[in-house]
Every structure is written in C-alpha cells, then in structure tokens.
Amino acid sequence: MANRGTERVKRGMAEMQKGGVIMDVVNAEQAKVAEAAGAVAVMALERVPSDIRAAGGVARMADPTITEEVMNAVSIPVMAKARIGHIVEARVLEAMGVDYIDESEVLTPADDVYHLNKSDYTVPFVCGCRNLGEAARRIGEGASMLRTKGEPGTGNIVEAVRHMRQVQSEIRKVTGMSRDEVMTYAKEIGAPFELLLQIREEGRLPVVNFAAGGIATPSDAALMMELGADGVFVGSGIFKSDNPEKFAKSIVEATTHYTDYKLIAELSKDLGTAMKGLEMSTLAASDRMQDRSE
C-alpha cells in the first residue's frame, strides 16, 4: 500500500533541493525568471521581506490568487509562508497543494507560545533556526527542513553567517560529548534528548539545512555553502537588484561551484547594483525578525 506524507517522503523532498537556490517571487513573471535561471524552487509571496519591512504593520499569508498564479506558471516546486502557529493558514496552503510550507518569522507570528505541530500535516514544512536548540525543537515538532534565519530583507549576510556558524559549532560540540553530557546539554539548549543523541551519532542534522536571511550576491551564496549550508534561500536579493535575470543565474552557478573562485569572479562581473543593504545596528530590537520566535 502506498503511504503519503511519511517522514521519509517529506524529508526526501528537501534532500532533492540540495545544492540549489530557492528564490522569493511575488508574481508569475518573476517565477518564470527564477525557473529559467535554474532555481530549484520558488517561494510565493505577496511582498519580499525588504518590502514587508518597509511596509510595517501585520504581515500575513499571501493572497491565494498570487500563490496559485505562481503554481500555474512553473513546473518546479512552489513554497509559501504561513504565520508561526497559524494552523488555518497552514491548512489552507496544504489544501491548495503548495509543495512546502515555510512557518516563517518573516510574517507576524499568530501564536507567540506555540509553533505548529508539523507532524500532523501531509505537506512538509521548513522552519528557521539560529542555533542547535532551536533547530532541534523545530525538528521535534515535525519540520522536514531547516534554514538558518539570518535577518531577512536586510541584504546583510552577517546574521546568516552567525547562525550557520552557531549551528555547525554546536553540532561539532555534541559530536564530541559523552552520553551523560548530552542530557545536560539537551536541558541547557532546550533540545529533545533523543534527537541530540542521533545528531551526536551521525555528526549532522537529520534534515537538510539551508541558509537564508541576507544573501545578496553570488559570493554571499558561495560563502554560506562553504560554511556548511545544503543550499540557499534568496529573498529580496534577486528582484531588488538591478538585473534580476543575471543575478539569479549567477547565484545559482556560484552555489553549485562554491569553491571555484575564478568562476565566481567571472559571475560577479558587471552584475549591476545589488540590493541596498541595512546595517544591523540601525535596526531597532522590534524590527529584528529573527527574534520573533525561539
């Protein structure tokens, strides 16, 4: 008998995205540009993170018209964002047949205590993390894929780097621990004990971990791969640049050949202006999307 929505089928979907770039798009035209450039998936949104940041107010699930338009325009997988803890937005996206749901801090959280119990769903989920504890809690809730949070919509790579380094460093730490040390560490970082034991055994997370939140250039994408990301999400970086087609293609190639520095030099030539970035110290605490969930 065929089984749908199993852990293997949900996590496996993310495994197929590895080494690829997932791009934020707000309409069918952008989705087609992303697909032609070699994106492995698109994230259908009403506004890219930098515009969400500029607009302020409450950010919610996109109008289903936009999501459907994108789904009809491309043959690659389509992801969409639901607010953290918003059971109905998630169920609506699942009913529409989106391929992956991002339970995302880029939108205003609907529940400031509980995340979705993602194991309940047939559709797989991706969630953000800043450290191993947060990563393990999301996996415990049933996330089939992770992405380091970074700081979305800033075009500044520093937070994405911080979070990827943090997760990788904690994985290395747990790999060298004795079993009795793992229990205390699990308590300290608020991670499920059994999951930490598994990570200690395998030396890596049981799900794919992409980088997100601030990637604006081909070199940024390659940097995140170098630091151990399985792939990258590029939000505002592509369609807020001068030449989206060229940026998109260059970021895809830099992600595949992330240690071929001569190639990355070629890819970075005459790209035009990247998105205007934000310095972290200019962000008020209330504007930091990464701190909206733990």
């Binding site: 065929a2 089984n3 749908r4 199993t6 089928v9 979907m13 997988p77 699942e94 047949g97």
Partner: peptide
C-alpha cells in the same frame, strides 16, 4: 511525463 503522480502532497512510498 514530469511530476506525473502530482505535487508534493501526493508523494508516497510503497
């Protein structure tokens, strides 16, 4: 035929 069994929610193991 690509994606011939449907979108991700229709993915399965057997």
């Amino acid at each position: 035929a690509r994606n011939a069994f449907g979108r991700q929610v229709a993915s399965f193991e057997v």
